[in-house]
Design a binder for these strands. Structure first.
Length: 296
DNA sequence: TATCCGTGGTG
DNA sequence: TCACCAAGGAT
């Protein structure tokens, strides 16, 4: 039977997972905080597990309880506080967003989709997430968890496409509850369900409340096509060297010279390449006489 | 649009 | 051991 994403089976799915969420929701601190607290959490959670974000989010919100507080401090402060969370460009984007919020939005995280989407480091997902989780608005929150749950339970495939397609978004919109409050809660519920039960590797189908109606299970849980594009090797990569350079600069209270950066890579060409990239990305400042530092 | 961007845990 | 995975975004 063809599914258009708005039939009674979908209503049953929504109701069942909302019920599951009512007794399985983790007490994460960003469930009850300010819009700024939500925005910080969303930046930190991009491609980063919850357990690693938790302690750092507490530190950040204590130190910078408002966008203005962060905007007043330097990018270097933000990069040091980001520590080893990964993707330090997120710390810079978050700092830049804090500046924009302070200067253009009166210090308040905007609740307007266009204004949110215009902030550096804020894409389609983060825009939808802030609308739902900070402002209780209806938005179709499509993250990796949500997309996997919908792909399986509704579309009957093990994995969603590599990127969100127009058709996928349209079908999800048909599935999403119409009211603001129910939509926002559903977004959190389906995301939590994907993170805790309908996981990527070993889904807990024995604990799943919608196993009987799951399209993927009914189809015999067909395995996904083999992933043709493999993840690039990290060991020895420019990426690894960039990370090491950032670590040296974070740990140094003053600018460093090339000698200190040799610890990041003994390969002069690779080290220069990585440094150029970091300078271009605004994560490192090149000073006179061959010295380097984190940006002001 | 395919690729790049960090880091650490895991099966 | 090592490839995959984790509340993506920018170019």
């Amino acid at each position: 039977m063809a599914r258009d994403g708005s039939g009674p089976a979908d209503s049953a799915l929504v109701s069942a997972l909302l019920r599951w969420y009512s007794t399985n929701e983790r007490p994460l601190p960003w469930r009850h905080t300010t819009p700024w607290g939500v925005l910080v959490s969303e930046f930190m959670l991009q491609q980063t597990p919850v357990d690693r974000v938790l302690p750092l989010w507490e530190v950040w919100l204590d130190r910078w309880p408002t966008p203005e507080a962060l905007a007043t401090d330097s990018v270097a402060d933000a990069l040091r506080a980001w520590g080893r969370l990964g993707y330090p460009r997120r710390a810079r984007w978050l700092h830049q967003s804090a500046v924009v919020i302070t200067q253009q939005h009166g210090g308040e995280v905007p609740s307007d989709p266009e204004a949110l989407r215009a902030l550096p480091g804020v894409g389609d997902y983060t825009t939808a997430a802030v609308l739902a989780f900070a402002f209780g608005q209806r938005s179709v929150v499509l993250d990796t968890n949500v997309r996997r749950v919908v792909a399986r339970t509704v579309h009957g495939i093990a994995q969603p496409a590599p990127h969100v397609t127009t058709a996928e978004r349209a079908r999800a919109d048909g599935l999403w509850p119409r009211t603001h409050a129910r939509s926002a809660r559903w977004s959190a519920a389906v995301m939590e369900f994907g993170a805790l039960v309908c996981t990527a590797r070993q889904p807990g189908c024995d604990r799943c409340p919608v196993q009987r109606t799951c399209a993927w299970t009914l189809a015999g849980q067909p395995t996904p096509p083999v992933n043709s594009s493999r993840q690039a090797q990290y060991e020895g990569s420019d990426r690894q060297v960039r990370g090491r350079i950032m670590a040296v600069l974070r740990d140094s209270p003053r600018p460093v010279g090339v000698v200190a950066l040799r610890a990041a890579s003994a390969d002069d060409a690779q080290r220069d390449r990585a440094l150029d990239g970091l300078v271009t990305d605004g994560l490192v400042t090149r000073l006179p006489r061959g010295r380097y530092a984190l940006p002001d």
